[in-house]
Design a protein around this nucleic acid. Sequence first.
RNA 1: GGUGACGUGGCCGAGUGGCUAGGCAGAGGCCUGCAAAGCCUUGUACGGCGGUUCGAAUCCGUCCGUCACCUCCA
Length: 511
Amino acid sequence: MDKEFRLFNTLTGRVEPLVPIEPGHLRFYSCGPTVYSYAHIGNFRSFLTADLILRTARAIGWKTTYVTNITDVGHLTDDDTMDPSGEDRMARGLQSKEGQRFANVWDLSRHYSSALQSDWHILNLLEPDVRPRATEHIREQIQTIEQLLACGAAYQTSSGVYFSVESFPNYGSLSGNKAAEALELAVRDVVVDPEKKDPRDFALWKKDAEHLMQWHSPWGWGFPGWHIECSVMAQAYLGQEIDLHAGGEDLIFPHHECEIAQAEALTQRPFSRHWVHTRFLQVEGRKMSKRLGNFHTVRELINDRGVAPLAVRLALISGQYRKPFNFTFSTLRDSERHVQRFGKAFELAESAKNRGHNKASMVGKTLEDRYQSVLNALLDDLNTPAAIAQALDGVRTILGHKDQLDNRAYTFMSGVSDLLGIVPTTKAHKTTAHPTKQLLSVNRPVAQTLSEASSVDPLTAKIEELIQARSEARKTRNFTLADKIRDELLAMNIEIKDSPNGTSWRKKSNI
RNA sequence: GGUGACGUGGCCGAGUGGCUAGGCAGAGGCCUGCAAAGCCUUGUACGGCGGUUCGAAUCCGUCCGUCACCUCCA
């Protein structure tokens, strides 16, 4: 009765069942970002793929061990032959306008890695079991490089230690980049080293006593190459052979190709059984770039534009991870509405929680079926658009049959919440580790008393004052005044809603 | 040049041989002091051309178009 979890495997080019080595226990690794600036929505689209895999695996009863790293070592940038000391991403971050406030790269990485984790929580991603940092695993990386040297898969030159691609015949099997010419171009090292035996060889260790981040090694002062950290950390926490390795599509080559070579040269066994890659997103039909002005960080959307975090999350998963995805503000606006509907349905479902199981309720039965459809869509290569459509169908059923709900409505909504993480729940429940209500632009009831209102911030007090004035005007049927106040509130980006229980309001995002 | 993906109605986006995807926008209705929200109803489609088949958006061929990666990038 075990469910099959099918995912596209880059290694084979096919959608195939994900089969954990240890039955019922998924051990997987997902490549995290280099923390030289704030994470953008593209980073998170990729992290969200891993998050959905985690949630889906748990929903079918699998145990999970999930590791995702923080790369806090600056690796080399491209075309940097002008500066043989090798300026890297972290160093560049330090020189940027934003980065100038940091005393050194260590402060910079601390700042951005804590920002990453706060974005992570605000977008309702589940915590990994381990979030290792590259700088805290230098020793393991050095040990692995020593082993690679010992077995003849690596060699030393005056400027570094290199992996010998020739020693690993399988090189290129993940990306299909077998042609020597293409490899030569692609893996060419930033700092050209004439002592390299083969142009395809890539660096495991760079000797550099000038680098902003450096460690002592058997080969002198320097820093690790940019592929070694991930394979080493994955194996340190998950074992030599893992079930799944995920990341953005750009990592297929050379990063993941090199990880495979490093790991398998030593173990002679498959490093990861399954490889999953998330396609890059576009924004408004174009490649996201600062120059085009369509570059968005998570915090810019949420803090500056006031978008509900879960709406950002929903928008980012509204396309399947493997298809080209166009992120638009129109999708984001739709998502805001949907998140509100999910929230409304959750409230209704929660109030039906204790109504028991009404066998005669067709609504309950329908919702049970809907949940299965949502789950099945995710089990089918993370078909999120189909899953969201099914979830919305359930939401519509709940909103349209308020009086016929039983406890299965609650089961449905919390199930959907656990699976997709897009439901604004009123309190933390189950796998959702943190309360999300405060993070959302949820509807707020107007404060009952003036003292209650004045205990909050001045803007809120002002809003509630206006709403109370409007209510008075409505009581005396002075609708002209009431509408004038409503317009005034709208100008402040405040949307109000009248109901038999009074007036509630919410701040609209400005997108 | 190499590798891969994609082309579905005004827009986003499922569907992979016959059976309603869903959403947004549009239209009509219910509700409302009027709105908003919510609910109900509703139109429009499968890039071109060949082929396979009783039957193709769905399979095959071909052409056209779009995009991505191959260089730091999720």
